[in-house]
Simulated scan of single mutants.
Amino acid sequence: MATNSAQKLALLILEDGTVFRGAAYGATGSTLGEAVFSTGMTGYQETLTDPSYAGQIVVQTAPHIGNTGVNEEDAESRKIWVAGYVVRDAARRASNWRSERTLDEELIEQGIVGIQGIDTRALTRHLRSAGSMRAGIFSADAAQRPEAELLDEVKNSVPMAGRALADSVSIDEAYTVEPKNFGWDSEPKATLVAVDLGIKSMTPERFAERGVRVHVVPASSTLEDINGYNPDGVFFSNGPGDPATADTQVQLLQSVLKQGTPFFGICFGNQLLGRALGFGTYKLPFGHRGINQPVLDKLTGKVEITAQNHGFAVDAPVEGTVQAPEAEFGTVEVSHVGLNDQVVEGLRCLDIPAFSVQYHPEAAAGPHDSAYLFDRFIDLMLEKKN
């Protein structure tokens, strides 16, 4: 059972032997995962409840965390998904009119083991140099064990490369999000099937705000399941794990593309479109996580500030138009590029109605530079529908 963590010793141990000593935060005990850092200055509750962080120990680079507490409204899914949580200065009290409880209370309630009071700037710089790696947080009684023993436990944990996690975070049963602020006597603009690979709750809401009925379905759904809704388009969401493990969803997507149904994917969905077209994927050294990632839209020449959370990327030529390795899908181009490292941030098919981006246009919390992508996909669905 979770206990009060105040002033109890905690250790963060990385697989390269680096040790950070601090105090327990949230639940006490031990936890293992991939240590990654998120550069967002706000939105810690959305980060914690983003299913894409499953299996990861998240380091917040912003020094003060927990100031505004937590509430039911801002959660992006049904629970906290991070494997562990690392902060520098945890708020001693929550101070916001929307706060319903403290972050510490929420972490304890959901059994999330964390650590506070460490130099997260030094940790982030280390992960930027050495790359994301396996780690463990050990607090209270667990922190009293020999460090060599704890390090062995970290080294024997499962690495992120090769992990299949999308099915474990997906829903078990489909649900529907109806259009918002749309006339009660009006028909939806379009019907969309969104495959939940770790979807954030704001994503179907963004479609619903634009008059689209969204059927959210499990990651295990078949083409028959999807076509049963007679959709005008199919959407693949964000999600955790290694895209190289998602063979079932890649085959499903290929079937969707072959029948000509308009497709839009974000984050994990972008990686799966890349795989469906025949491109490979690879693991980034430390990934992109936060709400301040600059991306170039090659079509317009505009720079978007985007929300991102991914540790894998598509291996495709950044310049020019190329034939998809899976030739039946025609030509494709990289539509968006990350300005920090030239990583593929979007794909656009030129011969079939499909495109994707590596980031989160629903952006809760912010920014909203990429909201136009929802309108672009709705236009694509309506064009095909009419």
Score class of each variant (00 low, 15 high):
154 V>Q: 06
128 R>P: 02
162 G>A: 04
126 H>Y: 01
140 A>W: 15
145 R>F: 14
161 A>G: 12
175 Y>Q: 03
130 A>Y: 12
133 M>A: 15
176 T>D: 06
140 A>H: 10
189 K>Q: 08
173 E>V: 01
168 S>V: 00
175 Y>M: 00
133 M>P: 13
181 N>A: 14
158 V>Q: 05
156 N>T: 12
135 A>I: 07
153 E>V: 05
187 E>S: 04
192 L>I: 13
148 A>F: 14
200 K>Q: 14
151 L>C: 09
125 R>M: 04
140 A>N: 10
135 A>Y: 15
143 A>C: 03
172 D>K: 05
181 N>T: 01
153 E>I: 13
201 S>N: 14
201 S>H: 03
152 D>P: 00
200 K>L: 05
181 N>K: 15
191 T>F: 00
182 F>R: 06
194 A>S: 07
133 M>L: 15
119 D>G: 01
143 A>K: 09
196 D>R: 03
151 L>T: 07
168 S>C: 00
192 L>M: 00
147 E>N: 11
148 A>R: 09
186 S>D: 03
161 A>V: 12
195 V>Y: 13
184 W>G: 08
183 G>K: 15
145 R>K: 09
155 K>T: 03
155 K>C: 12
154 V>L: 04
189 K>Y: 12
194 A>R: 03
195 V>W: 12
129 S>I: 02
141 D>L: 11
198 G>R: 08
192 L>S: 05
129 S>L: 07
135 A>H: 09
177 V>H: 09
144 Q>R: 06
151 L>F: 10
144 Q>D: 12
159 P>R: 12
144 Q>K: 14
193 V>P: 03
159 P>W: 02
120 T>L: 11
159 P>V: 02
175 Y>S: 02
160 M>H: 13
178 E>V: 03
131 G>E: 06
123 L>M: 08
151 L>E: 11
159 P>S: 07
149 E>F: 07
200 K>A: 10
180 K>P: 09
165 L>Q: 07
132 S>L: 01
183 G>A: 13
199 I>M: 04
198 G>C: 08
137 I>P: 07
142 A>P: 14
192 L>F: 00
158 V>E: 11
121 R>Y: 05
181 N>H: 13
137 I>H: 07
140 A>M: 09
199 I>N: 00
155 K>N: 11
155 K>Q: 14
126 H>D: 05
198 G>Q: 03
151 L>H: 06
166 A>G: 00
165 L>T: 08
185 D>G: 08
198 G>E: 12
200 K>W: 05
124 T>H: 14
